[in-house]
Nucleic acid binder design. Structure first.
Lengths: 215, 215
DNA sequence: TATATAATGTAATCTTATTCACATTAAAGT
DNA sequence: ACTTTAATGTGAATAAGATTACATTATATA
């Protein structure tokens, strides 16, 4: 693939969303789409869609039919699905962990969760959404064995750093962290944090703001 | 409260994070903190912390002791905890719903989830994390009765719009949506979307990018 | 009381992200 | 073949967000 110019984070996020929408359209046998339609589906503007496509070097649209859906999918895949993307390890098989297992492994999505880990004896050996649960002690070997490069942390905050260290020393280079904790990692490791409590507080704030000032 | 200048979204997010850290510090009997320490805890920079505090009109710091923790907490509370913040309705008591119930209702947090809703007969009447589950048909009455103004959607995407419409017509003005779907709402309603699949794809992309280019 | 020190508070700058605006263009209709 | 039409593709303008840089300042120490 072309050596791109460094794609903005926001664009990457939107590409993932466009892709899902496009796959759905494709399964409905549609072949073309306009920027304003995709914008509608992704809840943004036509100009934003066109700019994102421009950024990834996608200029196969035409004024009378829009963009070919297959063409867009190929372009987006070539950006998002990097060659040697590894599998995912999920640590912490509580309610949240189970939710992620059962809905990341049923959606069409590379990468997928290849192994789950927990300390609870009860859970070890169980299979949830076709993903087996191992004890933490086996992390290093399983990560190697299954070609895992990413981790999802769904353990209570107190354990989050310990789990992070284990993942990193096993060779993981990307982490999605659901624990409300700031993780220390070497700076070749990418961490994304999802803080649900914070999101709730944010919604509370802006819901109020909207009704005060009418958006 | 002071009529603020309109606070940037990113600042609101960080305030929620600062607050959690500060509460923890307070519970450890600390009384003061420097911007660089808070930055460390929140994984950002001292300048960012000071700017955020400036934005909310917080200038009670002093060069020799930093900021009083109680003072910061009061200031942040006065921004985030708006007077008449309502309670939350959670719709969809699957794994994800249960996860949110049990960890949003054990953390100290206004607002909290006051009612859960589901279509599954099995679940109706059950109490999860001290929150009772009702049928969708009772949404309107419960929302009024319990002073609910916010909704969390954890149903499969196909039902997300239907649930949204019900919430909105019951009077909800802020929604946190976990379904990978774009919701249509009147424009006095604030919607925040958390798209876990997208986040995974993002981590995959940037983990790769980091190891290619060393951050 | 004066001095040294290390943080604060903020204006100015730089960077990233979004929107505007319009010349260009591909097909459908005349 | 020509005209019309409604999107595309993109430079330029604007807005939003983060960082820099430094004058100011509260206390500890001499």
């Amino acid at each position: 693939m072309k050596r791109e110019e460094k794609i903005p984070a926001r664009t990457i996020e939107r590409l993932a969303i466009y892709r899902r929408q496009l796959l759905e359209l494709k399964s409905n046998r549609l072949s073309h789409i306009y920027s304003h339609q995709l914008a509608e589906l992704a809840n943004n503007t036509p100009a934003q869609v066109r700019r994102d496509l421009m950024i990834i070097g996608c200029s196969g649209g035409n004024p009378k039919q829009g963009y070919g859906i297959d063409y867009l999918l190929n372009s987006i895949n070539s950006i998002l699905d990097n060659d040697k993307a590894g599998q995912i390890a999920l640590v912490g098989v509580g309610d949240l962990g189970k939710a992620i297992l059962s809905y990341s492994n049923y959606q069409r999505s590379t990468p997928s969760v290849a192994a789950a880990f927990d300390i609870d004896e009860e859970k070890i050996g169980k299979v949830i959404a076709s993903c087996k649960c191992y004890p933490l002690s086996e992390m290093k070997t399983k990560v190697k064995e299954l070609g895992i490069t990413l981790g999802i942390i769904t353990v209570p905050s107190v354990y989050a750093q310990k789990v992070t260290d284990k993942l990193v020393s096993a060779g993981v280079t990307g982490i999605l962290n659901f624990a409300p904790a700031t993780l220390r990692v070497p700076n070749n490791v990418f961490v994304e944090r999802i803080d649900i409590t914070m999101e709730i507080e944010k919604v509370a704030y802006f819901a109020n703001e909207y009704s005060r000032l009418g958006k």
